[in-house]
Design a protein around this nucleic acid. Structure first.
Lengths: 352, 352
DNA sequence: CTATATTGCGCAACCGATTACATTCAATTT
DNA sequence: AAATTGAATGTAATCGGTTGCGCAATATAG
């Protein structure tokens, strides 16, 4: 009998000869309920294996205590770490998280937004897909006054809270480091889709070159989809075309990894002949030979900040709240792939 | 005005001078509603930016079309791929997924189960935490007749649907492969917690040795927590203690990676002097030097199967449904770390 | 010893969609 | 022309908590 129907507060109530409202208040520790009945109620609840129905509460309250998270994929250290950072804060406040993956697919992303809105999440924290160029779905979220926070992959076409790292500075520091290690012709791998992160990194690359009196050569900027295979292919093409370069700064660790493999395959010594640096500090970067210099995106703190902004927004009056943009400082993690004996620049020909 | 309150079917109804029930039926494409009104309703819905309230529907229907997924962490290729496999099937059937992470923490796991039950998910698909030894929370799920499917990290103390790979066979084939490459003293890294996956792999290890007339030496079985650092430490200890071995079969890719680093650090050639194989086929295994032989856990198919079992269970009569256990065949991915010139066994003395 | 507060709990409406059971009206049958 | 049928929609209860308001009983004040 109690197999099919789940226990409700009404069951508890009739068992104790009181009303459901009293049970509800008792369970919620309402001050106007005596300790005696509170004890009775909690005991009865345990006895009949009562499980609160959050659906009912959510319907009545208009809030579900759920945060929707949308990421391109969870199968990337960066994203899963941000999620963890969000969860840390959310769990403390007794909020739960629904994670959804867009798989870099725009239609999917739009669909997920609708699903989350229908699921009546209290808000959304997301990083947009690479292929998203239309932001009406985000507008719809804003129109409904649902709190929205963007991180890492952001857009300025919607006024919302944003958390990013200083991609510009990350790139700048990396290139500066390469220059300090004596590299003269630094190539740059980037993505043709000019979402914020890639364009910022490219700005940093260019400015760092200029700041050190090096010319910016368009031929050294190689566009691709930035996956492992792309990195391999780019290097091969560069070598086959006789392009002169002695370092690569890749906006993606995966492409950097591909570059590393291709260079090794062609017998080019890293870091002696060619220096290499990636972006993202994926865990495998410390496993490669040589280990890969990369930029750490402080993912957990980013998740923390995103969640904090979210809750700020949740409490605020949407009319007078002005969206904020938080910029975190990335860390350059220097490893073997870019470290040459301090002042032995020009040690490798190739460029000359 | 429509800023604060979200649109409901009642708003649509009064706008059109009909009732909410008609609107509901129109939106659900009920056959008894005329095409004319259906068109009117869908148009009006679009006009006022109506978003169905799944919470209300879920309350009324008793089903949320949500599946709860619990994994130790999503930041592991295996788990995130299984999730993807589940999503593939679930999305086709218009079900959504709530992903939660236990972070290998028992209390957290119990808490998540309660939260999901309260959120009234239609069922749960999970892989239990390493530290879970008490399964009452799973019993509670079963008692409530909530569909439950376990994958990879399972337990036999609860009668539920299970999906696993044949860990025994994966290990057996790996060890056989090592033997075929001439390795004679094969060590095994395992976890002291004897959850199914580790004990099965160990059985496979032992049986493969015996089947090839090699003695099983307890000293060659090393227990640790199987993280990167543990792998490093184990190898160092083995070397320092003068333990004779010429191959390592690790139940974890991470520990195998640590072993690889430690061996290289000590100047031991892989695979020439020591062969190495891991388990899990984490992406980084193909990035290392030498690349790491490992066992692929067919994660996406595992997710597919788990989801299929789930929906089977969802439709079935809980009284007469008998739980099933599906066993998938893993793939041994042979890479450099275990491949020596075919028949040149004993080429390396090892200990000295 | 009244008058006012406070405590403890019940009443009933409500959240938004769904659906079994009418009801209406026109078309079809007899 | 009355009766039957069926199409199209309305009525109202329901899912399970939550909460403003009210009322009785007890406590405190004056």
């Amino acid at each position: 009998m109690n197999k099919r129907k789940k226990a409700t507060i009404h069951d508890i109530a009739s068992k104790l000869g009181i009303t459901a409202s009293t049970v509800s208040r008792a369970l919620n520790n309402h001050p106007r309920i005596s300790d005696a009945t509170k004890k009775l109620v909690t005991k009865a609840a345990k006895d009949i294996n009562y499980q609160p129905n959050n659906i009912a509460a959510a319907l009545r309250n208009g809030k579900s205590r759920l945060i929707g998270i949308i990421v391109p994929t969870v199968n990337r250290n960066f994203f899963s770490s941000v999620v963890r950072g969000i969860e840390e804060i959310a769990n403390q406040l007794n909020y739960k998280v629904i994670i959804s993956q867009s798989y870099e697919n725009f239609e999917q992303e739009v669909q997920i937004v609708d699903t989350l809105l229908s699921a009546r999440v209290d808000g959304i924290i997301m990083s947009i897909s690479k292929n998203t160029e239309n932001f009406e779905h985000l507008d719809r979220v804003k129109e409904k006054n649902i709190p929205l926070v963007l991180f890492d992959r952001i857009t300025d076409s919607v006024e919302v809270n944003q958390v990013v790292i200083d991609d510009y500075m990350g790139a700048y520091k990396t290139v500066e480091h390469l220059i300090a290690n004596g590299y003269k012709r630094i190539a740059h791998f980037t993505n043709p889709r000019k979402i914020n992160i890639y364009s910022e990194r490219m700005r940093g690359y260019i400015d760092a070159l200029k700041a050190h009196g090096m010319e910016y050569d368009q031929n050294l900027v190689i566009e691709s989809n930035m996956q492992l295979e792309d990195g391999q292919q780019c290097v091969k093409t560069m070598l086959d075309q006789g392009l002169e370069f002695d370092a690569i700064f890749s906006s993606s660790d995966y492409a950097a990894m591909g570059a590393l493999q291709a260079l090794k395959e062609r017998g080019i010594a890293i870091p002696a002949q060619v220096g290499l640096a990636g972006f993202g500090n994926e865990p495998f970067t410390s496993f490669t030979t040589p280990s890969l210099t990369s930029v750490d995106q402080v993912s957990i703190p980013m998740g923390n900040v995103a969640a904090e902004l979210f809750f700020e927004l949740l409490k605020a009056d949407p009319k007078k709240y002005v969206p904020q943009k938080t910029v975190l400082k990335p860390d350059l993690i220097i490893r073997e792939s870019s470290t040459r004996t301090p002042s032995k620049p020009n040690s490798t020909p190739n460029s000359k």
